[in-house]
């Protein structure tokens, strides 16, 4: 190919905040764009939220059509203890925001502290979940409410666990900045954590509040 050099490449100047209106360039080939992964990740989260939406819709439909909802001998779920763990999980959205805030200010130590705190709070939530499961009078296969309860909390718990792992990986990377991809991984982990929190709020309302 002859050299065409493509004039002044406008994609170069676009930077991360670039929007995609007509006439605007998105990329110039070999210059890796930090945004691609984040775009993909946001799309992934949007898509993933629909799995939960499907489960929620299924929950609502089955509950509306049910004659007896809870397993025999169960009146409803104990909600006070779960509410405490809910508070822990929701506050962790604040701590991760603080961590990101400190990172933006360049205060790496505080960032790591709050990041680790967020991970710990997630772990506390998971532990609470396990305790609740062990204390329940019904098992996974005891009727359709039990099916849904374990499916929803279990699937959400998997996401919490995945979030903790994701944060762990980003934390480890923060010690080796040369590994690359640090910032976008961090943003992704943050987004994912907020996502997990929002899902939990809906889940809590469906499972514990809606009688």
């Amino acid at each position: 190919m002859t050299s065409t050099s493509a004039g002044a490449a406008p994609g170069e100047a676009g930077g991360p905040g670039q929007n995609l209106g007509p006439g605007e360039a998105s990329s110039t080939g070999h210059h890796a764009h930090p945004d691609h992964s984040l775009t993909g990740f946001v799309l992934f989260l949007a898509s993933e939220s629909l799995v939960f939406l499907a489960f929620f819709a299924g929950y609502a439909v089955l509950k509306n059509g049910a004659l007896s909802w809870y397993p025999a001998g169960v009146e409803g779920l104990e909600w006070r203890e779960p509410l405490r763990y809910t508070a822990v999980l929701l506050s962790s959205s604040g701590t991760i925001a603080l961590a990101e805030h400190f990172l933006a200010r360049g205060r790496l130590g505080l960032f790591r502290g709050f990041w680790l705190l967020t991970m710990a709070m997630g772990a506390v939530f998971l532990a609470g979940q396990v305790l609740e499961w062990r204390g329940l009078a019904f098992g996974f296969t005891d009727g359709v409410f039990a099916n849904l309860f374990y499916l929803l909390t279990g699937f959400h718990g998997l996401h919490v666990a995945a979030g903790i792992v994701l944060m762990g990986v980003t934390l480890a990377r923060s010690f080796t900045p040369s590994a690359g991809g640090g910032h976008k991984g961090l943003q992704a982990a943050g987004l994912f954590w907020h996502f997990v929190d929002v899902i939990w709020v809906v889940l809590f309302l469906l499972l514990y509040v809606w009688r």
Binding site: V61, L62, N64, G65, A66, L67
Partner: peptide, 11 residues
């Protein structure tokens, strides 16, 4: 009563 056609065996 159940627009989605959900079942209601006892009814």
């Amino acid at each position: 009563a159940v627009p989605t056609g959900a079942l209601s065996p006892g009814a």
